[in-house]
Every structure is written in structure tokens, then in C-alpha cells.
Design a protein around this nucleic acid. Sequence first.
DNA 1: ACGTATTACGTGAAGCTTCAACTATCTTCC
DNA 2: GGAAGATAGTTGAAGCTTCACGTAATACGT
Lengths: 161, 161
Amino acid sequence: MAQEDGAGTDPWLTDEEQRTWRALVAVALRLPAALDRQLREEHGLTHVEYWVLALLSEADDDRLPLTALAAQANASLSRLSHVVTRLEERGWVTRERAQHDARVTYAVLTAQGRHTVEAAAPDHVAFVRALVFDPIDPDAVVPLGATLAAVARTIDGHAAG
Amino acid sequence: MAQEDGAGTDPWLTDEEQRTWRALVAVALRLPAALDRQLREEHGLTHVEYWVLALLSEADDDRLPLTALAAQANASLSRLSHVVTRLEERGWVTRERAQHDARVTYAVLTAQGRHTVEAAAPDHVAFVRALVFDPIDPDAVVPLGATLAAVARTIDGHAAG
DNA sequence: ACGTATTACGTGAAGCTTCAACTATCTTCC
DNA sequence: GGAAGATAGTTGAAGCTTCACGTAATACGT
């Protein structure tokens, strides 16, 4: 592609930005695939499924409204609904309508579901550590998180706005 | 999930790592979706399709072997093969067998293909800037890239090894 | 030269995600 | 209290990706 360095308002990326951008895309595309592979091979779960179960296992009373779950799992509501259906079919989650508002549906973790996440968690965490935290400088962990959080917030704003 | 802080070898994440991990996953899951949406709405392209066209537009003689293209596009060879088929159907890319080794197939950018990427590039770059570089400190760009590159290399190693 | 392993790519089926409705239930505000 | 709009969730179809397998060509060891 022609990188015109013409009249001022040209929004092209600098070389440094270009390099950072490529690294970010590489991670954004390969990390989910790697996580899926590990969880699938070792525990028969996709990454979203694991993440949903993990969020429920940390929630009060083992339950969360689907909308809240979707936001925390970085998924669309539609996607989450399909995921919960699959988890329901495998007996790891059930749906319950809320009393105070009949529009909201809770996804509730079952005992079997809890057993599944807790079995998968140690391997998965070890994998995450090997993939992400082992190769980077410990001093880089906090800045990395802060920078990425800013990006995540911006993406969120664009999706909402 | 129970976070036992038990006997030494427990591989759980620290709170800081946990936060960074969540931010990384949030970006890794939302960024591709956001890029897809922008390119789809404004130019009828998926992110992979754009990326492939962009890589070809920068390559010598507008062509790359499918394997090289897959690696640079962070895609599996199978996925890339499907993508190239779709691009071929739209007249943006053609396939050519290599003379020196009949196993390799080049993906070659057509004039129409070049026109398509060049039309999409400015909008896309502006979007990337808005999403990633505007919200972060300019001084954070290089460290971010370095850290992510280390992670990308590690993921790559796991995929290969 | 010849069998074996490796590399490059293609393909169809299965599975997952997105998209575009659509239903049902509150909330607001005259 | 009733209409209009907002909110929560569901669903089926279409599209994309992964997976598993298959084919063809080349490199390697003896």
C-alpha cells in the first residue's frame, strides 16, 4: 500500500505504531485460538464456555443475569444465549427466571458445572502463565494491564455509542 | 473458584496478573469483533480478508505463497485457503502455481483487489488509531509492542512445538 | 533408484458466531 | 391507565472457522 506522507491530515501509522499494531493483532488472533485448543483437548470446553462457568463460580449464589454475563464474558447477548443453551444441555448450567423482573433470566451453575470448572482451572491457569506471564518481564505486568484496559474501555465505548 | 493459597507449587495468578489477564482477554475478544464490524459496514470486508489483501499489496510482485500468507495473517492454512477462495470469487485475488515447486500456490492480488484495499485502508487505519492509539500514552506504544511481541512469539512456539 | 517422511494445499462436514427479526416484560409520561 | 419506548432474552438462517482427512509433490536416507 502506498504510504503517502502528504499534506498534514494523513492518518497513517508511524513505524512504531505499525509494529505495535501487528503485535496486538497477532496476539488478538492467536491467543483465543490457543486457549480454545488447550481447553478443548484437555477438558472438552471452548474458551467462552470455560469463562462463563468461571464467572458463575465466582458470582453470588452461583448465578448471574444473562446480560451481565455477556458483558463480563465479552460476548454478545445472542452468542451468550447459545452458549448457555449448550452448557444447559450438558448439565452444567440451568436457567431461572428472576422474581423481581420477569424479563431477566439467571444462568445458574450446577454442582456438576462447578466440578467441571474446578477440574479445568489449574491446567488452564498454568497454560495462561506459560503463554503470557512467563515470557514477559514481571515489571511489565501492571503497565500492560493498564494500557490494555484503556483500549478495552475505548472499544466498549464504540460498541455502545 | 476456590483460590487455595496452599503449599508452594500452586500456580494461581496474583491479583495484578488477574487484572492484566482480564484486560488482555477483553481486548483479544473484542478487538477482532470491532475490526470486523467497521470493515464490514464500511467496505464489505472481514478483517482477515482485509489483512490478506493488505499483505499482498505490500509483497513483491503482489504475491505470496499461501503458507507464508497464513503465517503473516495469523491464520491456519485451512482458514486461509477458504478466505482466498472467497477473495477469488470476488475477483480480488487469483491463484497461481509456482514453477520451482509445484506444491506451492501463490495468492496474487488483482488490480481490482488493490483498488479495494486502497479504498478501505484510510478508514480502517483511522479506526485503529481511534480504538488503540488515541486512548493510550504515546510513551506506552513501544513497550506495549515489545511485550505483546514476546507473547506472540511464545504462542507461536506452542503452536509449532 | 526406491520407499518413507515431510511439506503444501484442498475440501466437506460439523460447530460456533453473527445478524436480523421477534416475543415478552417493564418504564415513562402524558 | 394506556400508548410509546426501552430492556431482556430467544431463535433460525447464513456465514465463517475448525477439524479431519485426502491428494500431490518434493526431500531424504540407503
